[in-house]
Design a protein around this nucleic acid. Sequence first.
DNA 1: TGCATTTGCCTTGTCGACAATAAAAATTTT
DNA 2: AAAATTTTTATTGTCGACAAGGCAAATGCA
Lengths: 238, 238
Amino acid sequence: MTKTKEKKADHPPLKRGSGVTHVYETLRNEIIELKLTPGSPIDEVQLSERFSLSRTPIREALVRLAAEGLITTLTNRATIVSNIDFLNLADFFDALTLMYRVTTRLAAQKHRPEHIAEIQAFQDAFAQTVAEQDVLGMIASNRDFHVAIARAGGNRYYIELFTRLLDEGRRILRLYYSSFNDKLPQQYVTEHEDMIAAIVARDVSRADELARIHADQIVLQIQSYISADTRPNATLSL
Amino acid sequence: MTKTKEKKADHPPLKRGSGVTHVYETLRNEIIELKLTPGSPIDEVQLSERFSLSRTPIREALVRLAAEGLITTLTNRATIVSNIDFLNLADFFDALTLMYRVTTRLAAQKHRPEHIAEIQAFQDAFAQTVAEQDVLGMIASNRDFHVAIARAGGNRYYIELFTRLLDEGRRILRLYYSSFNDKLPQQYVTEHEDMIAAIVARDVSRADELARIHADQIVLQIQSYISADTRPNATLSL
DNA sequence: TGCATTTGCCTTGTCGACAATAAAAATTTT
DNA sequence: AAAATTTTTATTGTCGACAAGGCAAATGCA
């Protein structure tokens, strides 16, 4: 009766401390990509079988995920994938908008040539996914694009918070990504290009303005998805 | 040759999952209060003796501290208390100022009566420590005051980041707290009162203005301490 | 004496087993 | 049959021991 559809990887000994990182990153991605759905249980022994590790390193990865808020541990009982907090979405949008603005401003002030190349590369990848109507790819490359801008700004506190917010946003967007059949993505491509131009020109106030508009639009988009959701209890606790 | 000056507490079995939390909070405080100085080694077996626990729960507490950036693990080698990053202090000040402003703005918008009582209580405690010239108490109660304001604003992302920044600030301030013999503390009391008034009046722009001034002053104060530091290598890596 | 190599030690990383806790199932009692 | 109680079970929390890796001292060599 055990779910044996887990692929038991047989590459246990890569390097000494690398197993934890691998488990952490793998689970983190699976949570963000909703392969592990909110509320679903995380079983330590099951994971230890899957990754061919003992429970100790698995546990360490879970502690890190819990510190990040991606999983929730019910003491002595179970650990589950954290639910998406629809009730406090306003806080999320507020912080997201602020980080959009602050990071773009800082990038305009502090970027160096190599940063522009990196940003442009991610923007190209984003444009490609838009051209291919690869919605899941769009969500991922859009995130990479903005993280690159944040890195150009160089403030580690903003980078960390913004990354977390963008990844949380990926979870939300994936819930509604079937609704993506509109013209917005192409507009985002243009806005991204404008943002790059403002950053290159070191035009701080214009970068700020563009970031604000961009953020507002994304917030509106997500909100429209949610309000268009007809499921009666869709915005309940989970 | 073993340092036996650690007080071996003999209260191991309180409750099942509480040991980790206790170790985490204890070490966190000791790091912030510089009882554990930056760069000093954290020995797992030593801690397990001190807290009468096995290495496993100690390790879990350390993982959480590492996730927060308070300790640094040199893989397979050692784990040390994280150094204060003087090189990137500008980033710290930038984020700190932003959080001062944003949280105070939000508090003016969203506070409820019970929040004001809490804020005022911490402000009273702060005023008390100033009157008593209790510098260490000032640092702590000032932090509590601003965290209370952030809680009144209610945005968990800001609360978390701001708390982290304020606690990191406590580490820095403790390095220089002997320089506190000036008139600034009394001025901070007044500014705090003004901030409370603006919050109560729900005057968002005034709250923002006051927070900005307050932040700038604190930044200037810390910077003056650092520049007045005559130690040649005081601002090196550690 | 200076440098490369080896050996040993110290700390962390991993493991398998056991204990505790709480939910679920089974049993008893009314 | 319903409710309270006991037993079972599933999962996490903790433990002690071992292995691995890196650093430093010790050794060998030029």
